[in-house]
Structure formats: structure tokens, C-alpha cells
Amino acid sequence: MSYKKLVHSCVFIISCLGAIYVNALSNTKVKQRTVGIIVPIEHQALTDIVNGFKQTLKQYDDSINIIVKNALGEINIQRSIIEQFKHQNIDLMVPVSLGTTQMAANLNSRIPIISLASKYDQNQQIPKNVAGVSDEIGAKKKIELLKAIYPQIKKFSLIYSGSEKILPEVEDAVVEANDRGIKVQKMMIKELRDLYSVSRMISDDSELIFILKDNLVASGVQTLVREAKKRKIPLMTSDECTIIGGGSFALGVKEQQIGIQGAKLAIKLFAGANIQELPFEQMEELTIFYNEVTCRKQELDVSRLKTIANNMQYSILSVTQSYQRG
């Protein structure tokens, strides 16, 4: 019995080795540009980013070989993928999200890296071989848009979770709002089930509910949609999904756009630019998402929204429940 097993495992190992050999042979033959994209986990937003990147790069040069590998959330697999790319000596690594970027930069200082949807801390030095696109917008632009749409607004309620990623943006938002003479009612939730009771405590003179790109709050957006409807005030959010879920309007980015902008960096690189000269960019193209049904109910004039978008040079996109991503 165990002899048979031994034979089985031998066959398995030999076939593996054979496959490596064949693979190594085929590697030496091909001489084309190869780009390796590392996705940390399966997620629709990440897929959109990758699609944007792939499409743009293919338009530039169809012969570029693009490999997408998904680490499925496991740090060991992620490391193996990066080592594998290193071994293949590919021309460009494209890690999506901050952790993946850090690992890629730490394990490899030779192959250029263009990072997507990540943001290094201000006090952190970005490694020499890394350029990229950050997906953060900053509170300032959001508050500016808010003020443009509602010039008379005196007070709004900001609901956010305790996650540390959000807190700096919350503080920024409050400062920006106060500078423009708007009072902010800050309300923090610890868990999703706090959201209902917190939503009942929104003060009566609050003219708008505002949430950031905050996963916890976003997952309970329906509660806020209902509350906003009852109070007949708009709900401003920071991404597309919450608008599909019934929010009024949001200033955000199309995930695809992150990929597209990253691909533009890659094209510059392939055209001869040095990776050290390439920047870590903010998102250029911001989008106002709005939900027509909700806006109509709240008597928010969509054409005025479009004018504002035009003035501020944002693109604008209507999304509703039936809207399909892609």
C-alpha cells in the first residue's frame, strides 16, 4: 500500500520537475515585455482596477504579455507570486493595494513597480523603484463640492466608524467645513448595529448626512438612506456602491480610472522614462455619482449638478439600482 503511495508521489514530483523544465525552456524563447499584476484578494473593486489597467495597456501595445495573479488573501501565496515574478525577470510589477506594494518593494529593488490604489504615509519614504496612483481624494474636494451644491448649508452630520484609516480624513473634513462656516455633527459608530441608534440622533437642524469611504458605515448604508428619506435631507457619500444603494450623490473615483491612470504611467515607463522620475500620483479624474431617483425625490436639480460638475471639471455619472458595473 505505502509502496504504491511512494510510486505515486515519485510520479507527482517527477512530473512537477518536468513541467518546470519545460516552462524554463519556454521562458528563454519568448522575448516580449511582460507585466505582472499582483492582486491581494478577490474583490470587485480590485477587478475593476485591473481591467482598466489591462485595457489601456493593451491599446498601447497589444504584444505586451500581462499576467494577473491573485494571492487569495494569503500572505504566503502573495510572497510566492512576487518571487515568481522576480524569477521570471518580468519588466514591470503592478501590485494593487498598499500591503502588496510594500512586500513587492521590500523583496525586490530592481524591477520597477507601479502601485495601484495605495497611499504611502506622508512621513514615509517611497522606495526608489516605486511609482503609482493613490486612490484617496481628500476631504477638501468633497467639502468644496458640498458647498457648491448647497451654498446655504449651515450644518451637516458626519457618520464614521472608529477605524484608524478614516479618522484623519474625518478631522480634515471638520476643519475644511468649519473654514467654510459649516458646523459638523460628528457621530462615530463602533459596530454596525450602532448605526441605527446613531442615525436616530441626527440633530433636527442638520441639513445633510455625509459619509466617507468607510467600509463599515457603507455596509449599513440602507439605514441612512431610510433616515435621510424620513428627514427629507440628502445623503452624500464617497463611492459608487452607496449611491447605487440609494444615496443622493458622491464624489469618488471610478475604480477603473485608477487602473487607466496607472497604465498611463506604465506606458511612460515603456516609452523610455526612468521609474525614479515617475511620480506617485493623486487621482486626476474624479467623478460625481448621483442617483436620479433619490435626487428627484429630494428636489435636487440634476442639471444644476451637471453644471457644477462641469465647472469643477469632474465627470458625472448617473447610477441607479439597475445600473450594472463594467
Binding site: 512537477c16 518546470i20 516552462n23 495573479k69 487569495l72 510566492s80 518571487e83 515568481q84 524569477h87
Partner: peptide
């Protein structure tokens, strides 16, 4: 780790890796 790296090197689709 040997099998993980081998599978990746053979070129198994990452989604089928697990």
C-alpha cells in the same frame, strides 16, 4: 512551499491554486 512555488511556476491559474 515547494508545491506552492512549483504550481505557480507551472502556471496553474491562481484562482485554481487553492
Amino acid at each position: 512551499f515547494l508545491s506552492l512555488n512549483t504550481l505557480l511556476r507551472i502556471g496553474i491559474e491562481p484562482i485554481n491554486l487553492k
